[in-house]
Design a protein around this nucleic acid. Structure first.
Lengths: 246, 246
DNA sequence: GCAAAAGTGTTGGAAATACACCCATGT
DNA sequence: ACATGGGTGTATTTCCAACACTTTTGC
């Protein structure tokens, strides 16, 4: 331990005045939220991107974000960005990580809190008025502006993990969906192929789907049954022990 | 979509000057890091707490944290706090979540980034000079200052989850440890009892432990073998599919 | 010799995987 | 009739959970 460390420790206890002074005067930093907005369309997982705000980065796409206002909660800021961009309320949203290296943003020190969200593309299809916005297949997302590629990668990995642990996928589908659509969704998100029979077995055994006794229409093959997700039957599992699995 | 939303969208594209102005003048917020520092001592999982900085909260314990400096990376700030408080380098550290409701801190708007870290208590046993600091059994942690209880709970849950997915526990143990110690660690963190034979089988089959051909000493019973963690054999598993398991 | 924990295998059940055929619809 | 995907069952394997006795040391 250095002399500085000890000094720091001895001075660790601060008065309210000292802290208030620091909070108000010296150590303030711009904070933003950035949202990785996922949608599912044409059997592909997509992400909503916008031309970079900054002219200098005009050729690059970036995530949707904005600065957080001093009197605004973090989550509220993320919801605000989502609402402004999609017109949707009631969106699934999860905070993922905060990115804060000193030089990450060209406009100065900006620390950003990353969120991902899942929306039903059908619900807001007509609401993209701005041609600076577009849905892009996640497989083709490269070279975003600033550090947005890293943010995107982190959020996408988080989604891949979460969707195996919690029934989130339904947020990306219409209320009524076929098992094939559900499986396509999982295969797109996880980028793999699954056995159809085992997939069905798995979901039926979880007992989370309500059979609507309706069929798909206008499909060029045998129509499949339609289901909806039964939120009542899903109660967050309380198990703490899921096994050691490195 | 409201008229305000459309207005917001139309004005979404900003010049560098406009953003720089916002970053520099209007929307700045104090940012801090708070560290949940775990240690393992007397077969109990413990957390390092300090008497609240603020006199008003003097009777309450709080997490170790500090404001982030304008020219300091987030992770660096967390390492700085750890180093100042424990004198240790080379600490396992993971960012968990950012807490940012407007009124969370009495000194004004402070958004805090929470980290947890795992340290070997033996290594820094002699370095706690400050009697405002103490190690507390996680089972007895209640009613921390500010929103630190929520931060602690979130970080503890994260640790419980992570330790089942990655070999982190070794950061809490001495270099040489017995299987009993390893099992005690898991049982403390997860707050459950495990079958000794199955636990051994599990760890041996993972092939991560090097048998040191040494024995425990000065134990009042048959001494156990000592092992150390073999970092070389652990390569982060690349499997993407771990199964749907809600 | 007694207390306390170390060390060690087997078995049964559950879950995951692999795999192939018939069915309903649109064209 | 044919192309397309819907719907179904079984055998195999793998993993996990449950469980008891003998051994080594300190006292």
């Amino acid at each position: 331990m250095t002399a500085d460390d000890i000094k720091a420790m001895l001075h660790a206890s601060k008065t309210m005045q000292a802290i208030q002074s620091e909070v108000e005067n010296t150590n303030r930093i711009a904070l933003s939220v950035d949202c990785v907005i996922f949608g599912f369309e044409e059997n592909k997982l997509k992400v909503l991107l916008i031309r970079s705000d900054l002219k200098k980065y005009k050729e690059k796409w970036s995530l949707l974000g904005d600065l957080i206002k001093p009197n605004e909660d973090l989550d509220s800021a993320a919801y605000r960005v989502l609402h402004q961009r999609t017109g949707l309320d009631d969106i699934f949203l999860e905070q993922v990580h905060t990115f804060g290296t000193v030089k990450r943003h060209p406009a100065g020190r900006v620390v950003t809190v990353a969120y991902y969200s899942l929306i039903n593309v059908e619900h807001h299809k007509l609401k993209i008025l701005d041609n600076e916005l577009h849905w892009q297949d996640v497989k083709t997302v490269t070279d975003l502006a600033f550090d947005h590629q890293e943010i995107f990668d982190t959020c996408y990995k988080r989604l891949q993990k979460r969707i195996q642990e919690h029934p989130l996928g339904f947020n990306l589908l219409p209320k009524k969906f076929s098992l094939r659509e559900l499986q396509n969704l999982y295969e797109s998100i996880l980028d793999l192929k699954m056995d159809r029979r085992n997939f069905r077995k798995k979901f039926f055994s979880m007992n989370l789907l309500t059979d609507l006794n309706e069929m798909e229409k206008d499909v060029p093959h045998r129509p499949g049954k339609l289901y909806q997700f039964n939120f009542k039957k899903y109660e967050k599992n309380k198990k703490t022990w899921i096994g050691i699995d490195f």
